[in-house]
């Protein structure tokens, strides 16, 4: 699960690193990705894993539209206004989903992958395993993109210094839009992977988004590889705390760690700033 948390968090971290805006609608993006997977299955019998590319494209488009339709106008606005704008978007998306598709829970029945794997007496659900592998793969791709391609480097340059980047001839507007599209694509992958074993309903994003925020804060804001580490730590603390101590205390461990990091290392475990 940690890798999935990390992937959700990666999009968040990317956008924050780029323009210092916390996207409060991130969980709702995830919800939409899961609904997209669900509808692909319900209407055309496409397994979430099969329709994954479509979901990713749709969410990337959504990220792009969000940037051009909303975020562009609040770039220079005070932080409170930025928070309200993305939070408002979250409430809007959630209510719209409930109005359109009802408040009911939906499930993808008979997914391609089900069952379990026994490793040294420990059972791991196969869907979760596939989700982890998929998340890791997506992460690798994302990392490769932002560190090895010219566009990715331009993206990083923009993140480091907006003005200097635009002086170098980088179209920062386009970079911002790209950042949002990439952030959307990340939750697109995560949503499709989650939909193979998790239920879908309008409020589903909230619980995951909370853990994603923790993962981002643990790893360090704006630092994509650190977010991966943060997500894995959250997932590990959750499952180990649950198995070894008591399931009711599993989130205590996660948030205690979070508090500790925020108090003693506010830049995050691996953060630079």
């Amino acid at each position: 699960m940690g890798l999935v948390y990390a992937l959700i968090a990666a999009g968040l971290s990317l956008i924050f690193g780029l323009m210092e805006i916390v996207n409060f609608a991130h969980g709702e993006f995830l919800m939409l990705a899961m609904f997209a997977s669900f509808w692909a299955w319900a209407l055309w019998r496409l397994d979430p894993l099969v329709s994954l590319p479509l979901t990713v494209l749709a969410l990337a488009a959504l990220g792009w539209v969000t940037y051009h339709g909303l975020v562009r106008f609040i770039l220079g606005a005070p932080m409170l206004a930025q928070i309200f704008a993305t939070f408002g978007l979250a409430v809007f998306l959630r209510s719209a989903a409930q109005a359109l598709w009802g408040a009911d829970f939906h499930l993808v029945k008979e997914p391609l992958v089900q069952g379990r794997l026994a490793v040294a007496g420990v059972f791991i659900g196969l869907p979760q395993l596939v989700a982890s592998a998929g998340a890791l793969l997506a992460f690798g791709l994302l990392y490769w993109f932002i560190t090895r391609t010219e566009t990715g480097l331009a993206l990083q340059a923009t993140a480091q210094d907006r003005q200097a980047a635009s002086l170098m001839g980088i179209d920062t507007q386009q970079m911002f839009a790209l950042g949002w599209a990439l952030g959307g694509a990340c939750v697109g992958v995560a949503g499709a992977l989650l939909a193979t074993f998790f239920y879908v309903f309008p409020d589903v994003g909230a619980s995951f988004a909370l853990l994603a925020y923790v993962a981002v804060a643990l790893g360090g804001f704006g630092n994509v590889p650190a977010t991966l580490a943060g997500g894995v730590v959250v997932g590990l603390v959750e499952i180990l705390g649950g198995l070894l101590i008591d399931p009711s205390l599993k989130l205590v461990g996660v948030f205690a760690l979070y508090l500790g990091v925020v108090l003693w290392r506010p830049q995050g475990l691996f953060g630079r700033f």
């Binding site: 699960m1 059972f123 619980s207 499952i239 649950g242 009711s248 599993k250």
Partner: peptide
């Protein structure tokens, strides 16, 4: 006797304990 927080994102540990 297993207690979990509602709206759980994962029940893997809980089911493991029950098993």
């Amino acid at each position: 006797k297993i207690t979990y927080r509602d709206k759980a994102t994962s029940l893997d540990a809980e089911v493991g304990k029950l098993k």
